[in-house]
Each structure stands twice: as C-alpha cells, then as structure tokens.
C-alpha cells in the first residue's frame, strides 16, 4: 500500500463529509497532510490528539480527521484550547487557524496565549486574505494589494505573524510555505513536541481569491513564487539586510525553554494544599 493511502485510511473520517470544501489549488490540504504525517511520525494515538479550529476555510479542517475535534467560534480557538489543555494536560492540543481568525478577531487571544505559554501547538495558515467570505483584506494582506474590500488598493500594513509570536513570548516559532512541505512536516512536529506555546506560520496560496484579485497566476505560479522567494533562517543570517529585501525567511525562528503554565500552576496547587488553608 502506498504510504499516503495508509495515512488516509488511518486518519481521515471517511464515513461523511467528503469531498472537502477547499478550492482547487488551496494550500490547506497540504497543511493537513503535514499535520497527519507529523502526528503519525510521533506515534501519537488518535485519542490523545485534539484538533481545534476557529472560523474560516481552515476552520473546517478538524471535521475531516479522526481525532477529538472541535470547531469553535471566530477567533476564539486558542481560548477553547486553553480550557481543554489545562483540564487534560496529557492530551496534545493542536490549534489550526487562518490569518484573519488568529490575527484580527483573535489577535488578543493569540498574543496572550503566547505570553501565558500554555502547552499548545498553533498552526496559522497565512493566505493574506479572507477566503471563505470571498476575498476581503486581512491583517496580513500586504500594503498596496487588492481585496474585495480594498478595490483600489490596501492602505493598511501587514502584521508579521511569526515575528509577533516571537515578541509575545512563544516558546517555539517556525515559518514555512506549503511548497516546502518537508520543512513544514518538521516544524509542525517540533511545535507539537515543544513544551509550551509553539507557533507555525504557513504561507499558503489562495489562487481563487488573493491570487485572482492580484493577478498572481494560478496555484502552480503562486507556489513557484514561494520556491523562488524564500530563504532559510541559516542562510539569512549570513546575508546583508538589503539582500533579504522582499524575501521570506523560513525555518525555526525561535526556540527557547520557558516555564509552562501547567507546571507553574501545579506549584500553586501544591502550595495551596500544603498551606492547609481552611475555609
């Protein structure tokens, strides 16, 4: 049996809900593939994985996989996931979000989840646009680009997801594209494995909305752009800033050991119980 067939049989829910809702050329399926390969490689049981999502195209990902799955409200996925993880720390809680979901409506939850350092893995699929609702600009739409709510051009500036996560205190931050799928497999695995808040930003093409509105070509063209305009973290370190202009740096941006929320809270419980504090 081909490896991909084995993984499909093992992890996808085939009793209902296929075909999926994603458009031809969408990168979401590639991210889902990476996620499944990472889980499989780590040898996690399906029972110990919780996949949480918000609203948008990425929000539909949990419905397709045979984990404990939760499709929450717009922007709030990380807060739901926090509740699950604190009650059942033995579970691997993975949160998948889009750029609008995680950074616009969920921006506050995102920075606080990073600061709080609850042991979660957050995968943010960045396609620079609101795809499901038909191509409105998002917080990651670059300046000057077009969207249905920016028909002349976008006059706002782009939020850098990975850099924001790093500043807000995440324990692990990585960035890849869906073109660099081996790297993506590896980053997702490391974010899940990392104790603390792990973030993977995945640049993903939306040829149907973002690509069409900005004349970037079809999905193949958009992925070729990814191939030709990225540079690894290691290489980027050796280059002068002017040569990095217009390039996307991919790889592990941050990895650090920080006290995680659950362990700190355990100490509080011990202290509260030890004090014998009565009512």
């Amino acid at each position: 049996m081909r490896e991909i067939t084995r993984l499909i049989h093992k992890y996808l829910r085939h009793d209902k809900k296929f075909p999926h809702i994603w458009c031809p050329g969408c990168g979401n399926g590639i991210v889902l593939g990476s996620l499944i390969r990472a889980v499989d490689k780590m040898g996690l049981s399906k029972d110990e994985v919780v996949l949480v999502s918000g609203i948008g195209c990425s929000g539909r990902m949990p419905v397709y996989v045979d984990f404990n799955t939760l499709h929450t409200t717009h922007g709030r996925a990380l807060a739901f996931a926090t509740g699950i993880k604190l009650v059942k720390p033995q579970l691997k809680v993975i949160v998948v979000m889009g750029d609008g979901d995680a950074l616009a409506i969920g921006g506050n939850h995102f920075i606080h989840a990073a600061r709080r350092n609850v042991d979660l893995a957050a995968i943010i699929i960045n396609n620079h646009i609101y795809g499901m609702t038909g191509g409105q600009f998002s917080p990651t739409t670059p300046y000057g680009m077009r969207a249905t709510t920016a028909p002349y051009r976008n006059i706002e500036h782009e939020l850098k997801i990975a850099e924001l996560a790093a500043t807000a205190g995440a324990a692990f931050v990585g960035r890849s594209t869906v073109y660099h799928v081996k790297l993506l497999d590896n980053l997702i695995e490391r974010a899940i494995e990392k104790k603390g808040f792990g973030v993977v930003e995945v640049m993903s093409p939306c040829p149907v909305q973002y690509g069409r509105l900005n004349r970037l070509g079809d999905a193949v063209k958009m992925m070729e752009w990814q191939r030709d305009n990225t540079i690894s973290v290691e290489k980027a370190k050796e280059l002068p800033p002017e040569e990095l202009e217009g390039k996307l740096v991919i790889g592990v941006l941050v990895e650090r050991d920080l006290p995680i929320y659950q362990e700190e809270y355990e100490k509080i419980v011990e202290r509260a119980r030890g004090s014998g504090a009565a009512l």
């Binding site: 949480v52 939760l70 929450t72 409200t73 922007g75 709030r76 990380l78 807060a79 739901f80 996931a81 926090t82 509740g83 699950i84 993880k85 604190l86 009650v87 059942k88 579970l91 506050n108 939850h109 606080h112």
Partner: peptide, 14 residues
C-alpha cells in the same frame, strides 16, 4: 470572550 471559551473547552474535556 476568552473566559467563556476556556470554560467551554474545560467542560468538553470533562
């Protein structure tokens, strides 16, 4: 917003 969301997550976990 996050408070009630975390509460629902916790309840789903049991």
């Amino acid at each position: 917003l996050a408070s009630i969301a975390a509460v629902i997550g916790a309840s789903l976990a049991g």
